[in-house]
Design a protein around this nucleic acid. Structure first.
Lengths: 218, 218
DNA sequence: CCGTAATATTAGGCTTGCCTAATTATTATT
DNA sequence: AATAATAATTAGGCAAGCCTAATATTACGG
């Protein structure tokens, strides 16, 4: 089994690969994990020996298929636990990340399978992020950033790209929840503020930063 | 917060103190934890500095009040998670120990409070062991070993002192479950075998070893 | 009360995963 | 292409928790 440290590297590498394409840089990973580059180099050499990453000195690295599957397994656990925390224990969506960060390192395939069944095989976590199935397959769902929509178009709010408490609390405050229909009424050219119509009634004005953190589907 | 290793020491020391009275020996702890004595001495010095144990060189040691409360907190988490695993996820009582052993090290007071409420504040875990409340208080319940009963007496089966899979499976096999009424019909002087009447109907013969691992109340 | 067995501690080492400082590669700039 | 800036690696260390081997302490039988 992999150590918690290794699992955190796997998750982080996966995330960077998803975001920036193929090769991941030592510096990017160090920044994301909040540790120094030398430590990353250290660990990558070890993970390379274990065939979790393909590592080319001074060039960059990427997950092997083995590493990719391991990473997806951890993401699956993290997101299932988040669903549990919110749906069953009554946590708010902005409170669950740190706890799930610990729970994702519990080692038991049986546990995660039973948890999945208990939660009725959820497809997304409380932030709208997709949950891979037991085989590591994500249900494909094409979404776009709200900031990419032009005035007049609309869709359903299905996810966020910013998972911070501050951002999630802000959404609660303006009354925007996952699943809500959102229409772009107007985009102010000057400051890029977006005027949105929520659920066909409430009108709110949000910054580009916010519009660029909301995922819209359909 | 304490490390997982420290928490395992705390739990083990607590257990030994409960079983054998006051001072705990280095060797006993080493054996229980499956590590070497030198390692125990190492760790105890550190835990002593942290005021978790009162440590007298070459004499023995015991938990401080701070250590005792920490130990009880871990036991509480372990047992609540066991209830969750059995009652909610459908694990059998002989399968949950190792998973709970991991889950007990998750750090979040909020989590454990919410879990407790979700499980409806259970008083005992799936093996009949008492669960301390949020203040660290155990509901007192006086039970005796079945091996201490004389023929003719009876009571309710409320706990085990052997938590091994092998033993628990054996109880399943002979059809003995927590809460069942058990009557001692006969004790064979020669080999100390116990003839029991389960739930007023089924009669079974068990060894002294088994009788000495069953807790009876009322 | 003395020697031996049993217990406990000290000393020195190892692995994991991190650190700082120094060095080497790579990339960008003029 | 030479130099400067940025990125990456190497070298040497440290704390946590474990180990083995050596030493010290306590307990016990005669």
């Amino acid at each position: 089994m992999h150590s918690s440290a290794e699992e955190n590297y796997l998750k982080a590498i996966y995330k960077l690969q998803e975001a920036n394409g193929e090769l991941v840089a030592t510096s990017a990973l160090a920044q994301l994990l909040g540790i120094h580059m030398a430590s990353v180099t250290d660990m990558l050499k070890k993970m390379s020996t274990k065939k979790l990453v393909a590592y080319q000195k001074s060039k960059g690295f990427k997950l092997t298929e083995k590493g990719r599957l391991a990473a997806i397994g951890i993401i699956r656990k993290h997101r299932l636990w988040e669903v549990f925390l919110v749906d069953k224990l009554g946590f708010r969506w902005d409170e669950v990340h740190d706890i799930a960060e610990q729970l994702e390192h519990i080692h038991s395939q049986d546990l995660i399978d039973k948890l999945d069944a208990y939660l009725d095989f959820p497809k997304t976590d409380p932030h709208g992020d997709p949950i891979p199935d037991a085989k590591g397959v994500f249900a494909i769902s094409k979404s776009v950033l709200l900031a990419a929509l032009s005035p007049g178009s609309q869709g359903k709010f299905t996810g966020v790209t910013d998972h911070s408490s501050a951002f999630l609390n802000y959404l609660d405050k303006i009354g925007l929840s996952l699943g809500d229909t959102v229409k772009v009424k107007e985009v102010e050219a000057f400051d890029k503020n977006y005027t949105l119509l929520l659920k066909g009634k409430k009108s709110v004005v949000v910054s580009f930063k916010v519009a660029n953190s909301l995922l819209i589907s359909e």
